[in-house]
Amino acid sequence: MNKDFRDTIIFLSPLLLFVSLFMLFPVLGTFWLSLWRDVAFLPRKFVGLANYLRLFKDTQFWQSMIFTLIFSLISVAIEMVLGIIVALVINERFHLRGAIRGISLLPWAIPAIIGARIWQLIYRYDYGLANYLLGSVSGVSINWLGTSGGAMFSLILADVWRTTPFVAIIILAGLQSVPEELYKQARVDGANLFQRFVKVTLPSIKPVVIVALLFRTIDALRVFDIIYVITGGGPGGATTSLSLHSYKYFLLGDFGYGSTISFVLFIIAFALALLYIRLGRFREIAL
């Protein structure tokens, strides 16, 4: 028997085993569950696509879909812009750059739940920091989490705070791969700072920006942690993301319908993941 072939199987099998048992298999299981009526205290019954038809009448599902899309779109857009700015800053050489890079990692490095708890306290209507600062400037208080617009804004800000660092690091890698000669050439050609950014930097980091964009979009679509803590999906379901909507059915013991919602989310994420892979930045890591 071919030794390398044997080794290949031995070396790969732990990965394949774990990944199939705890990811692939559960996703297929979720699809299987979505074809059943599987509610606590009721007999299980195969219902085919009935759960999927139920989605059409579920107004909260559609509200969650719209919320999730708008939330993802806006927060990812802001994160990309801020991420590029932060990346440009930490790519420069300056005293204590290491420390600033470390600080730029912090919001992303700590548990999302802890970040969410801090923002929740900041947004508090009665004694939150946000209203205190706002009040001392203009005398107005905003019910951050009590209105659907305010809650949306609050969640986006918290998400931007938490994930801009991640975007910045990915884009930093792109910035570092821009050859120094390109900037020198542009300088020799008389391009000013702004022109160099638009004509040299932006086109050079475009592929990395697209990768970060897709990766973040997929990540934003499955948002759960910060919403669970900051708004709990409220007010009145206005900020219930698809993940949270699905979770609420799991909590009620309705695994059939909960799985249906989460499987729809999976399809959306998977489609984006395929697009992401097609763009194929990963083929570059030498194989």
Partner: peptide, 21 residues
């Protein structure tokens, strides 16, 4: 490689229901 990469983008919520069972 690509399959494993795609797995990393699975939403936790689409795994956790079945995982619970």
């Amino acid at each position: 490689v690509l399959g494993v990469l795609a797995l990393s983008m699975f939403p936790q919520i689409s795994i956790v229901g079945y995982l619970y069972k």
